[in-house]
């Protein structure tokens, strides 16, 4: 092979990120007759998301998959993508992310800080795990819920009536077990694979966030590739994105059965009041023209 690109992500090889990147490698190889391929590094062995994003600029990794909330620390206008209830559901998210106008708008923001968008993966629909059943938003009152440190997420859970609480991810399991926190938010995948259900067996299927994960390269590294390679890579990215999101959706649905089997108690609270509580948070974080534009574009896809 003439070109081997290093791709970094933080999940296990068989989880959707790993599957999606390997699909990207497979398509790229096919389209370039084996002249280019991607070497996938799982489990954050080349660095976590923040370091991988930096790595695409420093030349230490070529391709990085990153939760949007991490990327938004570098490209603030992208924070729109991780607002609560930004997407109707996983299907609408898939349609929105397939829309060329949406992709162009995201690329325009990435351009400003020197990133190239290859693909957009899904990191799943986020629900709420607790140690007591959540039948309605009122049950969230006063609960200490661990969230990511993103200000919009903190505000969202405070708006739900909970107390958004920062806890290091590595300490979350123990914190749930002993009751330092009463719950946390996660996708089916993490909830299951990290065994959080052992210590927080109530799973309120709220879908408060569709976590999207852009797959990026450094713009300079991308531009340095020959033209036919750039095209092959972009096409591989598109195809892998569609595949990964479909894989995620399928595995997400299959996970519900696994969780049921593991003894998880699921509730399906009415999301209307959650959405109403999140609406002001959405507005608060629509500050710049770039953010408003992406927001309108995403909303316009039905």
């Amino acid at each position: 092979q003439d070109i081997t690109l290093k791709a970094s992500h933080n999940a296990n090889a068989e989880e959707p990120y790993g599957v999606g990147l390997r699909k990207m490698a497979e398509v790229l190889e096919a389209k370039t007759d084996g002249a280019a391929t991607i070497n996938v590094f799982d489990n954050a062995t080349l660095g976590d998301e923040m370091e991988s994003i930096q790595g695409t600029q420093m030349g230490t990794v070529d391709i990085a998959v990153t939760a949007n909330s991490t990327l938004a620390n570098f490209v603030p206008d992208l924070s729109v993508l991780s607002l609560p209830f930004m997407f109707e559901n996983a299907e609408q998210m898939d349609r929105a992310l397939s829309d060329p106008a949406v992709r162009d708008a995201i690329q325009a923001e990435l351009d400003k800080q020197g990133f190239h968008l290859l693909s957009i993966f899904s990191a799943g629909t986020r629900h709420i795990m607790t140690k007591k059943p959540i039948e309605s938003m009122a049950d969230m009152q006063g609960l200490k819920i661990r969230t990511m440190q993103t200000p919009a997420h903190v505000d969202t859970f405070n708006a739900f009536g909970a107390n958004a609480t920062p806890i290091a991810y590595t300490e979350l399991y123990g914190a749930l077990e002993t009751g330092v926190v009463d719950g946390a938010e996660a996708a089916n995948t993490n909830f299951y694979s990290q065994k959080f259900y052992e210590v927080a067996p109530d799973w309120a299927v709220v879908g408060w966030l569709e976590l999207v994960s852009p797959v990026i390269m450094g713009k300079a590294a991308y531009e340095a590739l020959p033209d036919d390679m750039k095209n092959a890579l972009d096409e591989a990215g598109l195809e892998a994105g569609k595949f990964e999101r479909a894989t995620y959706l399928a595995s997400d649905n299959a996970r519900f059965a696994d969780l049921e089997k593991a003894g998880v108690k699921m509730t399906h609270p009415d999301t209307t009041e959650f959405r109403a509580a999140a609406a002001p948070v959405q507005q608060k974080y629509l500050e710049t023209d770039g953010q408003k534009k992406i927001f309108e574009l995403l909303k316009s896809v039905k």
């Binding site: 930096q54 600029q57 420093m58 909330s69 991490t70 620390n73 570098f74 603030p76 800080q113 990511m148 440190q149 993103t150 200000p151 920062p166």
Partner: peptide, 16 residues
């Protein structure tokens, strides 16, 4: 150097 260059626009998650 490259970290500081990026660090001009990279914001910390909580404190921004």
């Amino acid at each position: 150097q490259p970290l500081i260059k990026m660090g001009a626009f990279q914001l910390s998650p909580a404190l921004q």
